[in-house]
Amino acid sequence: MTENGSRQHGFSLPEALIAMLLLSVSLLGLLNYYQSLTNGFMRQWQTQEAWAEAHSQLEAHAATGKGTEPLAENWSYQLSGISVGQLCQRVQVTVQTPAKYQAVLHRLECKFVP
């Protein structure tokens, strides 16, 4: 009680500091969770784009006989063909994302002579 007989209301300094500590630890946990979610979504997006780019490279090779430029910076692809018999070729494309994920697709392309 104070001198005039009324009781003080509110928090003491140690209580306020403990509350701030708990709030900051909770906030750091949420930020860490957000960062791991963001990284997971980025990996998933790169994986989907790698498969789409590999398919696009195979389609371009079937139409023109060569691939196209990579999708974006830091993405790479390798296109190779191995002869299978006289009229067929096994084409393989490997697309690598900046996160080092690789998508590999194969296709057998044959030229038919009438």
Rank of each mutant, 00 (worst) to 15 (best):
E59F: 03
R90P: 00
T94W: 00
R90N: 06
V95S: 00
L79V: 11
Q44H: 09
V91Y: 00
W45F: 10
H61W: 11
L71P: 02
M42N: 12
W45P: 05
L17H: 08
P70T: 06
R90I: 04
A103E: 01
E49R: 09
Q8N: 12
M42H: 09
S76M: 09
L27F: 14
L27N: 04
C88N: 13
P14I: 04
L37M: 13
G85H: 10
V95H: 01
A62E: 15
A60R: 10
P114S: 15
G81W: 02
V84N: 15
E69G: 07
H55P: 13
E109D: 12
L22E: 04
G5Y: 07
Y101T: 09
M1G: 07
Y77W: 06
V95Y: 01
P114D: 15
A50G: 08
S56F: 14
T68S: 15
M1Q: 08
L23N: 06
V25G: 05
S24C: 08
A63G: 14
R90V: 03
N4V: 09
V91C: 04
A19V: 05
L105N: 01
C88W: 03
F112Q: 15
A60S: 13
S56L: 04
A54W: 03
W51L: 00
K111W: 01
F112C: 10
A72M: 05
L31N: 08
K111E: 05
W45H: 09
L105F: 04
F112V: 11
H55F: 13
Q35E: 07
T64I: 11
Q92G: 02
L71G: 04
A60C: 11
K111Y: 01
L105Q: 03
M20G: 13
L30Y: 13
V93P: 06
Q48Y: 13
M1A: 05
P114I: 07
H106V: 14
G5V: 08
S24D: 06
L58Y: 05
E109W: 03
V95A: 00
Q102Y: 05
C88V: 08
G40N: 07
Q86E: 12
A63F: 10
L79S: 08
H9V: 05
Q89H: 10
T97W: 07
A50H: 05
Y77M: 02
H9C: 05
T94E: 02
V84T: 11
L58N: 03
K100Y: 15
L13F: 09
H106C: 13
Q57C: 01
F41E: 12
T68N: 10
G85A: 12
Q96Y: 05
G5F: 07
L58Q: 02
T94M: 00
S6Y: 07
F112G: 14
A50P: 14
K100F: 10
Y33H: 11
E73I: 08
E53L: 01
E15I: 08
G81F: 01
R107W: 01
S56G: 11
L21E: 11
Q48T: 14
R43E: 12
R90T: 07
